[in-house]
Design a protein around this nucleic acid. Structure first.
Lengths: 167, 167
DNA sequence: TATTGTTATACTCTATAACTATA
DNA sequence: TATAGTTATAGAGTATAACAATA
C-alpha cells in the first residue's frame, strides 16, 4: 500500500494524483484552446520562451520522436509563433526561437494558467499551498534527476515548459 | 502571488503542479503504450471498469464531444476491450460495457501505474505521501464539486478514471 | 560511418456539421 | 421538436522507416 490509512475523503495517492493530473491538464487544454493552440504547441512555446534548443534537444525535453518535433515546429512556424535559426557551428542543426507573437501568446497563457491554478487550490490554506508546492517540486526534481534533466535551470515559465534540460 | 515565499528548490505552485502533471501523464503514457492502448482508451477502460455509462454520459465525464466518444468506443470495441449493450428502456441509447479482456488490461495497467507512482514519490517520507494524497484529494474533490460531479462515487480505479459523475 | 533533421506514411484523437432513429 | 448516437470530413499529434545533408 502506498497510502498508509487513507482517511475520510482520501482517494489514495494513485487516484488522487491521476485525477489531479486530469484536472490540471483540463485547465491547460482550456487555456490553450482559448488561444487557439494545442497543449503540445503551448508546451513548445513554454520551452523556447527562455531558450533556443535544437530539434533533437526538444525531442529529448518533450520525450517525442524527432519527426514529431519537426511537425510541431512546422505548424508553430506556419502560425508565426516560432522560427528556425540556422546553427553557425553545425550546418545540420537548427535552433528554434520564439517570435514576438509567440512570446505574447505564452505570456498571456501563463497568466491565465496562474489564475486557473489559483481557482483549483482556492480551498487550501496558504500553508497548505506552500506544502503542496514543496512536495510537488521535490517529486519533479527527483524525476528530472532520474531522467538526467537539470530542473534548476527552470525559470517561471507559467508551468508550460514541462521537463527542462541542460544543453 | 500564489506561493508565499517559495523556498530553496521550490518551483512555485504553478510550475510545480504543471510539471508534476507532465510527469504523471508521462507515466500514464508509457504504461498505456506498453499495453498497446492510447491514454484516452485507457481512461475509457478505467471508467467502464465499474459502470456501464451511455455515450452521452461518457462525453460528459471525459469532456469530449459525443462523436469523439463514438470513435473512442469504436476502436476499443474493434479491439475487443468493450462492447455496446442496447438499452432496454430507450432504444436510441447504448451502454458501454467492459469485456473480460478489457478488464484484464485495465487491472494490469492499474497495478503498473501504482508501481510507477511509487517510484515517483520514492523520495518522500510516508507522512509526506499521506499529506500529498490528502491535499490532492481535496483539490480534486473541490474541482469535481465545482463541475457538478460526485467524486465520492469513485472507487480505486487505478486513477485511470478521471472525473466521475452521478448518472 | 554517425548524426541532424526532414519526408512519406499511417493511425489515433478531436471537433463541427449533417444525418438517422427514436422519443 | 428534441434527444441519442453515428457518419463524413478535416486537422493536429504521434511513431516508424527511409532519406538527404553534414560531420
Amino acid at each position: 500500500m502506498l497510502t498508509p490509512l487513507p482517511g475520510e475523503g482520501d482517494l489514495g495517492l494513485v487516484d488522487a494524483l491521476a485525477q489531479l493530473t486530469f484536472a490540471v491538464q483540463g485547465a491547460l487544454g482550456r487555456i490553450a484552446a482559448e488561444h487557439d493552440v494545442s497543449v503540445p504547441a503551448a508546451r513548445l512555446l513554454g520551452i523556447v520562451r527562455d531558450r533556443q534548443p535544437t530539434i533533437g534537444e526538444l525531442a529529448t525535453f518533450l520525450q517525442l520522436d524527432k519527426s514529431s518535433v519537426t511537425g510541431l515546429v512546422d505548424r508553430a512556424a506556419e502560425r508565426g509563433l516560432v522560427t528556425r535559426v540556422a546553427s553557425p557551428v553545425d550546418r545540420r542543426s537548427v535552433r528554434v526561437a520564439i517570435t514576438a507573437e509567440g512570446r505574447e501568446l505564452i505570456d498571456s497563457g501563463a497568466a491565465d494558467l496562474e489564475a486557473e491554478i489559483a481557482l483549483l487550490v482556492a480551498d487550501l490554506t496558504p500553508a497548505q499551498r506552500t506544502r503542496l508546492s514543496v512536495l510537488a517540486s521535490r517529486i519533479v526534481a527527483a524525476d528530472a534527476r532520474r531522467r538526467g534533466f537539470d530542473i534548476h535551470a527552470t525559470r517561471a515559465t507559467g508551468g508550460l515548459s514541462g521537463g527542462e534540460a541542460r544543453a
